[in-house]
């Protein structure tokens, strides 16, 4: 996966030869290019390794794989920018999925299902925000509690069984419809991404999110309603997670009480890969997109290469460590 580094590695940085210049040039262009460059390297490497990578079918598949992670990671970006963390998104997949499937099974129209889904996600997010701001419970603890409790509610409600969505429900179009040949989930993910982008970079609320994460006390003294801002960040995270949950349920025709396990860690990893600081206040939504892209490309490539799913976890872990070190090196190099 690090094939892109190959030609760089062979040069000996100690001798100021032609090789040294190539090395120097490569280093500075990587440093300037940053994450997009890294993604491009991985992309190019995959294309070279397997001819099945860069095909229309595979690219659509890749985008489809990405979109749920992207939607969840967008919400997570808001939360992490405030300096928090949201572990409960994984259980929103179960909670919202089960509730939506149940109301649809009882014959509710798709729109009602949609509203129920969104409200359930927002409810989880609001509860997180309430516990964190009014209850002064640290984000890690309160979202951990919600992660456990929401999963529990889903299990109790469904008695542990999947709930099927009626095959004739138009709700399923959420997962299967195509517009101009583009699968609907991709469009939803792009819309969520654009909304997040606009909120974060064009609105006062977005500025407040950065301000709260960058310096909570200075934000408070500037008259920013920090509790409201934090609560809304978690509501958005829950809301986006429920969007992802509904796409997931629609694609499986089922609400699963076990859905989404581990999704929170993937989302956090993608956000952090995208350069957002876990201590808050720094990062961009575009970075999150790149982080998601990097993770999805790797997974996709490894599947094509027939690498076992178990082994993929090891690679993913290594990539996270590598990318964080890379980012640190890049900042240092760029600042010098």
């Amino acid at each position: 996966m690090l094939q892109g580094e190959g030609p760089i590695g062979v040069a000996d940085p100690a001798t100021p030869s032609r090789n040294w210049h190539i090395w120097h040039w490569a280093k500075s262009s990587i440093a300037r290019g940053g994450l997009p460059f890294l993604v491009a390297i991985v992309f190019a490497a995959m294309t070279l390794i397997t001819p099945r990578f860069l095909t229309v079918d595979n690219m659509l598949g890749l985008a489809l794989e990405m979109c749920i992670l992207l939607i969840v990671a967008c919400g997570m970006t808001f939360v992490i920018l405030t300096g928090g963390i949201d572990l409960s998104v994984s259980s929103v997949f179960a909670f919202s999925g089960i509730l939506v499937a149940d109301v649809l099974r009882r014959g509710a129209p798709p729109l009602v299902g949609l509203v129920v889904g969104l409200l359930s996600g927002a409810l989880v997010g609001w509860t997180n925000g309430f516990l964190i701001t009014k209850g002064a419970v640290p984000p890690f603890i309160s979202t951990l509690a919600l992660m456990t409790a929401a999963r529990g509610v889903a299990l109790v409600y469904s008695k542990g069984y999947p709930i099927g969505i009626p095959i004739e429900s138009r709700f399923l179009l959420l997962g299967s419809a195509k517009i101009f040949g583009i699968p609907f989930p991709i469009i939803v993910a792009l819309v969520v991404f654009l909304i997040s982008y606009v909120i974060l970079s064009k609105t006062h609320f977005g500025r407040d999110v950065y301000a709260v994460g960058g310096n909570l006390e200075a934000a408070r003294l500037s008259g920013i309603r920090i509790h409201t801002v934090i609560t809304w960040a978690y509501v958005l995270s829950g809301l986006f997670a429920s969007v992802g949950a509904m796409i997931y349920a629609a694609r499986l025709y089922t609400g699963l009480p076990s859905a989404g396990r581990g999704a929170e860690l993937n989302a956090i990893a993608a956000v952090v890969l995208g350069g957002t600081s876990l201590s808050g206040g720094e990062g961009t939504i575009a970075g999150t997109l790149l982080g998601v892209l990097l993770m999805a490309t790797l997974t996709n490539g490894m599947v094509l290469l027939g690498i076992s799913a178990d082994f993929q976890y090891i690679v993913q872990g290594a990539v996270i460590v590598f990318a964080i070190q890379f980012d640190r090196w890049r900042k240092k190099y760029r600042d010098v």
């Binding site: 609105t203 500025r207 310096n215 200075a218 500037s222």
Partner: peptide, 29 residues
């Protein structure tokens, strides 16, 4: 307590919420 060091000069000068709110419309900056 006074500044957001990572944010730029404009964002810091226009940080006070009520003032910043008045500059834009419909919640947009």
């Amino acid at each position: 307590q006074g500044l957001h060091l990572a944010m730029n000069v404009r964002e810091n000068i226009c940080m006070v919420r009520s003032f910043r709110g008045k500059l834009g419309r419909f919640g947009f900056s």
